[in-house]
Each structure stands twice: as C-alpha cells, then as structure tokens.
Design a protein around this nucleic acid. Structure first.
Lengths: 162, 162
DNA sequence: GCCATATTGACAAGATGTTGTCAATATGGC
DNA sequence: GCCATATTGACAACATCTTGTCAATATGGC
C-alpha cells in the first residue's frame, strides 16, 4: 500500500486532485447513473405491453400496499407531489385506481386500487419477482445486501451535507 | 442457514414470491432510485450558482476530455442524441463551448470547450474533487470499489436479458 | 375556540427529455 | 467508382417533470 492510499482527503491534494476514495466515489457515481438509466429502461420494457411505464408502476406499488393521498405517496418515493398527481390522475382515468373519501381530510382524497388495479398489480408483481429472482441469483444475496447498505450510507452522507 | 436460502429461483416459489436474492435485489433497486435522485439534486446544487445543471455538467465533462461530435458524446453517456444536441446548443449559446470543423465529417462538427469553458470545467472539477474526497472518505475506497463492481455486473446482466 | 402555520390539490407555465422523420454525409462491400 | 446501408444534425411533435402560485383545509400552540 503506497503512502498515498489513505482514505482521508489531504490538504496536499492539489486543485482537482482525487484521493483514492475520492476517485472510487467518482467511479461509483458514474456507474450509478448508467445503471439507473438501464433500470428505468428495463422497467419500461417490462410494463409496456400493459400500457404502463416504470414511473406509473412505482406509483401503483406505493398505493397498492394501502390507499394514500397523492402527497403521502410522493413523500414516500421522494418524487414531487405534482408529478405523482399527474400519474395518479392517469391511473384513475384508466380505471386502475380511484379516488375515495378520506376520513381525515375533506379535500385530500385517498388513491386506492380498483379491482382492475389489484389484478394489474398482481401481474406486475409476478413479473417483477421472476425478474428479481433471476437477476439477483447472478450476484448473490450477500453481495446485494452489502451494496444496498453502501448506497444507503451514501445517501445519508449526501443529505447531511445540504 | 435455512433450506430456503438458496440463491437459485425455484419453481416452487409461488406467484409473486421472492427468493432471498430476489428480495435483496429488489431492495437494491429501490435504494438505487432514491440515491440517483439525491445525486442529481446534489449535482444541481453544486452547479446552480454557475448557471449549470447536473445534465449540462455531464456534457461539459464529456467534451472536456477531448472535442467530439454530439452523437459521440451521447453514445458515451448513454443519453439520446437529440437531448445532448439541445444541451450542446445551450453550451455554445452561453459561450462555454463552440462548434469547430471536423476533419472527418463535413456536417458533424465537433463540440469543443472555449477558453471560458475550460475555466468553468476546472472550477467544477475542483468542487467535484473536494466533494468526492470528503464523501468517499466516509465509506472507504475498498467498499466503494466493491459497490461499483456489483453495479457494473448488474448492468451487464440486465443488458443481456434484453 | 382562535389564530398562525403547514399541508394539500388544482392549475399554469416552462424546462427537460423522447420519439419520429428527413436530407446530407460517410462507410464498406463489390 | 458505384451503391446499399448507417450515421449525423435539424426539425417538429409530444410526453414527462419541475416550479411557482393559489385557495381550501388541517394542525398545533395558546
């Protein structure tokens, strides 16, 4: 191990110079963007024949576990309220979801799955499980969990910073 | 270890059921989306005072190493040609980049940084390095590299599938 | 209960990204 | 050199996402 392989950023690292960990982090960010793009593309592919997209699927999943308001779903997924609203409106138009009265709020109705929505959710769930099981088997549960853990820690570190 | 902890998807896994690796993979996907969102937000924050965004920064970086055509830059980053074209046009309008003659193609000019673009790239590079070094140090180079490796393998596995 | 404050859905405008099409140009087989 | 094919930038139409604003409603301090 060379004298420069410390994980601590050094004052002596000149302008624009990466430490070892800094370089590794940068590579991770690049790969993260790439994989994210691929992941969304696969999600779109997996749902296209059912008239869905990855984004719609995500909302379907959020309201599927239990009915919630648009704002609550948006918060849960880290998306903007307005974007989720638009998708929720589309789901309702398409008969997949419906707005139901919210005992806790007069205006903020709950978005709930219709019978058709529940069936769609099940079908997509089966597809996702097949896909996840096959893909996950390529890597192995232990490594996947370790990876998820690093991603979570990174997210926390980034949020503190702001 | 229980009899069910195999990494192989089983026929006996009922509809919608996850294997251990399948469940771990699913968690990873969820965390990937979240971190990606945070990452773009941080990129936007880091560049906002310079009139930039994460997307523009990415293109700046691509043409910064050496001038290339819009299509080449798009390919390199996995973005659409048209989207990169729009961003490149903006960079040129803003005096950050310019179109220069391409000896290999009469129409497809190269996008190159101007003097101002080079300075901007340096400034952003310094910021990025500080940020990467600090954030990377929280995790450590070894774990970061292991994580990047898993992401790369996942991307490969997903691409084969399509 | 009253009131300051936060949350929520609705709406609009604009930014950003995608998809399809076209003609100009380059490339490779022959 | 000629020609089929692929690549490229230009343009347009559209989909998607973000940002700002507003009034209705809920919440918590008092």
């Amino acid at each position: 191990m060379s004298r420069d392989s410390t994980n601590l950023p050094r004052r002596s690292a000149g302008a624009g110079a990466h430490t070892e960990a800094g370089a590794a982090f940068t590579q991770l960010v690049i790969e993260l963007f790439r994989l994210n793009g691929t992941m969304v593309a696969v999600g779109d592919d997996m749902t296209r024949d059912l008239g869905m997209t990855a984004a719609r699927w995500q909302v379907l999943g959020a309201i599927g576990s239990e009915p919630k308001t648009v704002a609550a779903a948006a918060r849960q997924m880290g998306l903007t309220r307005q974007n989720v609203q638009r998708i929720a409106d589309w789901l309702v138009e398409s008969g997949i979801a419906e707005f139901v009265e919210n005992p806790n709020h007069r205006r903020a109705k709950l978005v709930a799955l219709t019978k058709e929505g529940v069936a769609l959710r099940q079908q997509l769930g089966r597809r996702q499980a097949r896909w996840a099981n096959v893909t996950g088997a390529h890597i192995g549960a232990a490594e996947l969990r370790a990876t998820t853990d690093v991603l979570k820690r990174l997210k926390k570190a980034l949020e503190k910073r702001s």
